[in-house]
Design a protein around this nucleic acid. Structure first.
Lengths: 229, 229
DNA sequence: CCAAACTAAATTGTCGACAATCTAAAATCG
DNA sequence: CGATTTTAGATTGTCGACAATTTAGTTTGG
């Protein structure tokens, strides 16, 4: 059984296709945060009828990218410091748990693969110092694999399907890059080492710190942006 | 602002109505676990077209009550010991977090109301010793209010909207009752005391233990059922 | 001039029918 | 006789149109 990389999915139905396109558009800001969503407009834009579009909207609501009010329509969510903190509080708990479980459940070969992935990312980072996109994708991939390693069906579903698009949206639109990128590598290394040693408690702790540091990094960024504006 | 009891909701659209009815039917076992779901049949049964029914199915999938496969249809989830453990592992983390946050965020009047609720439940339990339904509803109400007290939007959404119907389903269909009912009251009391004292760390710990004990209770029950059958 | 009531346009929710896909039973071939 | 292919039935996905509701603009009354 091959592990399907989480960032590439296959669209079966036309509802899937529309979902993926709108998801990407919202995450990357092509459809602005807080923007009202018009069903007829989007249906025309993506060449589908309203039925599959509404199915897609239901799934967008599920991953917290839009908010719907019955008989009134949908809006893209607005990003806020408060929301960011709420989101990362949950991530700390759930991904900490994921690490603890992965330390018990993750097979050796998956751990090896993850190590190789980290090495590969290190090279890419050296080459593309400063550019943050690849690091972000790599970071997400790292987190994804540990979550999958937990073998907890609900955990996987909640984090990978319901929460991570919003995480990406915060990262892309609020900008997570700069000097923290290199430090994140060391933290990833320490986490995978703890998992390889089957030390779930340590892996849990390290992941909580890692996510906490990431949160503080974005908070700081928001703070300085406010001051300079 | 009045706190709307989570167990009573108002159906705005006909899709809502169908959702609530099917939700109840699945949770209480009227539609059996593992059962295949036929869209035309359910549409006839609830006197709606397939459009609102499919909207309802999408939301049922969201709260993990059914599983859908594109072009192949939906099934009611099957309950398993493995699934139960996965579910409760997540509850321990998230409700522990909810307690910690509630200790910081919950206003005094909400804490008082929750205390009064516990006293009321105590009376009901004395009167109806042995019958577990009221305790269950009360227990859920208790957990609900603490989650709401956390004031974390995502936490509230994930627990109250996405996970708790499944929790109820496990409880109803696997039967959570017996001598643990009375002990749960004491645990609830201790938790609300910790929150009232603004001791988030303790409240967190106590909630994790409370949920862990609840899980072990059900596990034990499943074990003995297996042996006697 | 402001507020409330009404009206019209647009949007969302729902319906019935058609197209695409899957499932299972019947037929064919080795 | 068993395995594969074919075919018929049923189910899911999608479409366009209609009904119900909301929103914005206009009119009316104080």
């Amino acid at each position: 059984m091959q592990i399907v990389s989480p960032l590439e999915r296959s669209a079966i139905t036309s509802s899937d296709r529309v979902l993926f396109e709108i998801q990407r558009a919202i995450v990357e800001g092509d459809i602005a945060a807080g923007c009202k969503i018009s069903e007829p407009e989007l249906a025309r834009r993506f060449n589908v009828s309203r039925a599959p579009l509404r199915e897609a909207l239901a799934r967008l609501e599920r991953c917290h990218l839009i908010e719907r009010i019955p008989n009134a329509g949908a809006r893209v969510v607005t990003l806020s410091l408060e929301g960011l903190i709420s989101l990362y509080q949950i991530r700390e708990e759930l991904e900490g748990l994921a690490c603890r479980l992965a330390a018990e459940q993750m097979p050796d070969n998956e751990i090896d693969e993850l190590r190789q992935l980290l090495d590969k990312h290190l090279e890419t980072q050296r080459v593309r110092e400063g550019e943050s996109y690849y690091q972000e994708a790599g970071d997400l991939d790292f987190h994804y694999r540990i979550i999958l390693g937990s073998k907890n069906q609900y955990l996987i579903n909640m984090l990978c399907d319901e929460l991570y698009y919003l995480v990406r949206m915060y990262r892309v639109q609020m900008g997570m890059n700069g000097p923290r990128v290199s430090r994140a590598f060391d933290e990833h290394k320490a986490i995978i080492n703890a998992i390889a040693n089957r030390d779930g408690e340590l892996a849990d702790l390290l992941m909580r710190r890692h996510i906490g540091a990431s949160r503080k990094n974005i908070e700081l960024r928001l703070q300085t942006e406010k001051e300079t504006s």
